[in-house]
Amino acid sequence: MAKRSSGTPATAARGRRSPRMSGDEREAAILATTEKLLESVPFTDISIDDLASGAGISRPTFYFYFGSKDDVLLALLDRLVQRSEEAIAGLEPSEDAVRQGWQDVLGVYLDTFTAQRGVALACADARFRNDRVREGWDRAATLWVDNTTAGIEAERARGAAPAGRPAREIAIALNAMNERAIYGTLTGAEPSLPRDAVLDVLVDIWMAAIYTTPPKL
């Protein structure tokens, strides 16, 4: 005769506890919830309760991982920058495909910001009201300028690009242009470039700025 279970199915189900999330999983859930909400909701309209509920945690538990909504945004900005830097690692102009090299690099930034549109726009807006977000954005901008400066100097060193204004000055202007152009494309603010044209336009201007011999004064 088969041995009978000592408890009913309902009793057995109540006796099994669902696995608890680890600390890393809770933090990841908060970040994922924020990313998801930013696809359709302005950052200013998202509450701590929204983030905690979406992550499956309590409000007090949220504060164990982040001190504020802006702290979450800073973490997302750091991750956005890290993803773009990882994606362009090893990409650089080559002697045989100069334009394609720059297009690959700029395309990575455009694709990364397009894929994380909500995060990018929230960070771009928040920097005007929060010093810490602005400092994080400025660190990212400095990193992109440093990368561009190194690329221009490398092209000059191998004789592909002419000498001219300091490479860093050109890099600052080009990246500032990128920021405004991409922001306009992502928001639809006018005047703005359509998504299918913005990359080609930016690459054209970068090529002209880096490889055209400057006029003599």
Results as ranks from 00 to 15, higher is better:
54 G>D: 02
198 V>L: 11
179 E>K: 10
101 G>S: 05
132 R>Q: 06
89 A>S: 10
20 R>G: 07
172 I>M: 13
179 E>P: 02
82 Q>Y: 11
24 D>V: 06
67 G>T: 14
78 D>V: 03
168 R>G: 13
173 A>H: 14
82 Q>W: 11
159 G>A: 11
144 W>C: 08
189 A>H: 08
30 I>N: 00
136 G>R: 01
91 L>Y: 07
131 D>R: 07
143 L>F: 02
48 I>R: 01
182 I>P: 00
194 P>A: 14
63 Y>I: 04
97 A>E: 09
193 L>T: 14
16 R>S: 00
200 D>V: 03
56 G>I: 07
99 R>Q: 11
173 A>E: 15
151 G>K: 04
56 G>P: 05
30 I>R: 00
165 R>M: 13
84 S>R: 04
165 R>Y: 13
78 D>T: 05
1 M>A: 12
57 I>T: 05
187 T>F: 15
173 A>V: 14
173 A>F: 12
60 P>G: 01
95 E>F: 07
9 P>A: 14
141 A>I: 03
120 A>F: 13
189 A>E: 10
53 S>E: 06
162 P>C: 04
63 Y>Q: 02
14 R>Y: 09
212 T>G: 06
57 I>G: 04
121 L>P: 00
194 P>F: 11
191 P>T: 13
71 D>W: 01
188 G>T: 09
215 P>G: 07
51 L>K: 02
62 F>E: 06
17 R>V: 12
149 T>V: 08
63 Y>P: 04
21 M>R: 15
92 E>N: 11
11 T>H: 01
194 P>Q: 11
121 L>C: 00
170 I>T: 15
177 M>Q: 07
51 L>S: 01
88 I>C: 06
98 V>A: 10
179 E>L: 12
4 R>I: 09
126 A>R: 00
41 V>I: 13
58 S>T: 15
192 S>L: 03
216 K>Y: 10
40 S>A: 15
97 A>F: 07
139 R>A: 14
204 D>K: 04
46 I>F: 02
168 R>E: 13
198 V>R: 10
66 F>Y: 12
113 F>T: 12
81 V>P: 01
120 A>R: 05
46 I>H: 03
45 D>Y: 07
212 T>Y: 08
36 K>Y: 10
186 L>V: 09
208 A>K: 15
